[in-house]
Write a protein that binds this DNA or RNA. Structure first.
Length: 546
RNA sequence: GCGGGUGUGGUUCAAUGGUAGAACGCGGGCUUCCCAAGCCUGAGACGAGGGUUCGAUUCCCUUCACCCGCUCCA
């Protein structure tokens, strides 16, 4: 229709989410609160489905991953060890003249945006005093609000996994390589929450920490570390192998995670596998792959194509995190690897010496980078030598691969991907624009709607309610008898319900006994209809929503 | 945090210094009704606070939220 102005795609999606009960602004009756969003009835179902599929895929369907559900508030030392206290709280200075903001410790290095020949410190523009920008939410544990009670809401779920690593290892009967998975809330006081729910201040993460042997241990045990280039040249990696080093494991998890996204309905062409450049890597990372989704609001390249925004980061973090916690807590994070000890004994001395040396260099490098004030090179050297000696006896701190995904941005990606407008004929056969969410049935908030053709016919209503009650224990069904049948179909189209089950007069046997106790199943995507026996419905549906 | 823009039923919009309209949606009713039909009927809004004014949804200020651009993004 020419008279209705066409809204930008993202605005249409936001309006639909509000209209249908996927996403609302938090605290909306008080004007909302920046960076916080609530999930309505359909959004809550969608999000639960996503989390459940992740949990099943990552833990229950695997032998080598177990779950954890840790607290949001933890000992503040955890955030010192992880580096968040330092890196999350840079004092910043604003220039009132040029409106720029600069890290207070870099004023002597950064060129002034208006006069690049001078540094910010030399520029005469009026500056604010340095102000702390701590991206971690703070609170106090206990009633006394003083420094000693200060605590943080976790800015990521990962650290809880590291902090509980030893407990899980001892109680789960797992051996390296194995993983610990967790889903939970995290909080970041983002400077600028943007793009709907994409960057929120309260959000949910799905994180796996997958612990692997150091490459030196793999080499000692298997004689070599599989060359990733050769593996990849042969195609997908397939099942994990004992001779995989960190690079093969890293690539394995990238492949697994992309497969997961495809399995819940994100086509491969909407995803981008982005390998971070060396200068982009965080301090702890050896390599990081971001899996990007081409959100409608995303940035575009010079050809105008969407380049994607991050859904998940898969980082190879070496043994940095566990080492940090070992140093800060004083509790050993080493594991004992019987295979390593046995294999080590059979190595010839030259090989032993070479592996010892490499492990020693790796540890020395880490200890040097994270040295505390006052630590001497001799002390570091001694500590690294102890680590290497322990390694030769089968002890090491596991390395880790971390696939870390944001639930909320994934839900948003699924909605954006599912949103479609197409043409459906109305009762007169004229084509009309229809809005439909083409969710994969696995994640659809409502799997099936049960609809009596008319509601003023008690037999139809009774039959429909019966069907609803039969299906309800097994899948989310929605019963609706209000208004014309076509209207109810369209409602379900906007909710993304893949199947509508219509109870009509044929169901009652009015057109003959052969149709008695059959219903119409209508497909969301093309409006196609099929007749099915009522007693065949449940298995038919279950097969299609798995 | 800076600059610009926008705030009117659930959604998308309109008008107005003096009783706020529409479309769609939503509730109820009628219709043996398979793709947003029709008829009847009902509920529902000026983001919040302050100021100017006899009177403010409208003008002014503050604030909050959203959008765009910067900035930030472990």
């Amino acid at each position: 229709m020419a008279e209705t102005k066409e809204l930008p795609l993202m605005e249409k999606i936001v309006a639909l989410c509000k209209r249908r009960g996927f996403i609302y602004p938090s605290s909306e009756i008080y004007g909302g609160i920046n960076g916080f969003w609530d999930y309505g009835p359909l959004g809550a179902e969608l999000k639960r489905n996503v989390k459940e599929l992740w949990w099943n895929t990552m833990t229950r369907l695997r032998d080598d991953v177990v779950g954890l559900d840790a607290t949001i508030i933890m000992h503040p030392q955890i955030w010192k060890a992880s580096g968040h206290v330092d890196t999350f709280s840079d004092p910043m200075v604003d220039c009132k003249t040029c409106k720029g903001r600069f890290r207070a410790d870099q004023l002597d290095e950064i060129p002034c945006p208006q006069k690049p020949s001078k540094t910010v410190a030399q520029c005469p523009g009026e500056k604010t005093p340095p102000r702390a920008f701590n991206l971690m939410f703070q609170t106090w544990v206990g009633p006394v609000q003083d420094e000693s009670a200060l605590a943080y809401l976790r800015p990521e779920t990962a650290q809880a996994i590291f902090a509980q690593f030893k407990n899980v290892l001892e109680t789960s009967r797992q051996k390296v390589p194995f993983g610990i998975a967790q889903i939970g809330k995290a909080f970041r006081n983002e400077v600028t929450p943007r793009n709907y729910t994409f960057r929120s201040r309260e959000f949910e993460q799905m994180e796996l920490e997958y612990f692997i042997r150091p490459d030196e241990a793999v080499e000692a045990i298997c004689g070599r570390v599989a060359a990733v280039e050769e593996l990849l040249a042969r195609g997908p990696l397939g099942e994990p192998q004992p001779d995989w080093g960190w690079q093969a494991w890293h690539k394995y998890w990238v492949e697994e995670r992309i497969r997961f996204y495809e399995s819940i309905g994100l086509p491969r062409e909407t995803l981008v596998e982005y390998w971070q450049k060396p200068e982009e890597l965080a301090h702890y990372a050896r390599a990081t792959v971001d899996i990007l989704f081409k959100f409608p609001f995303g940035k575009r390249n010079e050809r105008g194509e969407l380049i994607g925004e991050e859904l998940e980061g898969i980082a190879a973090r070496s043994d940095f995190d566990l080492s940090q916690h070992e140093r800060y807590s004083g509790k050993p994070m080493r594991v004992f690897d019987e295979e390593l000890r046995a294999a080590w004994a059979k190595l010839d001395p030259a090989r032993q010496q070479a592996l010892w040396q490499r492990y020693f260099e790796h540890r020395k490098n880490y200890l040097t980078r994270t040295a505390r004030p006052g630590e001497t090179p001799e002390q570091i050297e001694r500590a690294a030598r102890e680590d290497a000696d322990a390694f030769a006896k089968g002890h090491y701190i596991p390395h880790v691969i971390e696939p870390s995904a944001g639930v909320d941005r994934l839900v948003l990606a699924l909605i954006c991907n599912a949103y479609a407008e197409d043409q459906m004929p109305d009762e007169k056969g004229n084509l009309e624009t229809r809005v439909v969410l083409r969710f994969h049935p696995r994640i659809a908030p409502i799997k099936a709607a049960v609809l009596p053709l008319v509601r003023n016919k008690p037999e139809l209503v009774r039959k429909a309610i019966e069907i609803r009650d039969t299906l309800r224990p097994h899948l989310t069904v929605f019963y609706d008898d209000a208004g014309a049948i076509g209207r109810r179909y369209r409602r379900q189209d906007e909710a993304g319900t893949p199947f509508c089950i219509t109870v009509d007069f044929d169901t009652l046997g009015e057109k003959g006994p052969e149709l008695k106790d059959t219903v119409t199943v209508r497909y969301r995507d093309d409006g196609r209809q099929e007749r099915l026996r009522i007693d065949a419905l449940l298995p038919w549906l279950l097969e299609r929503i798995r």
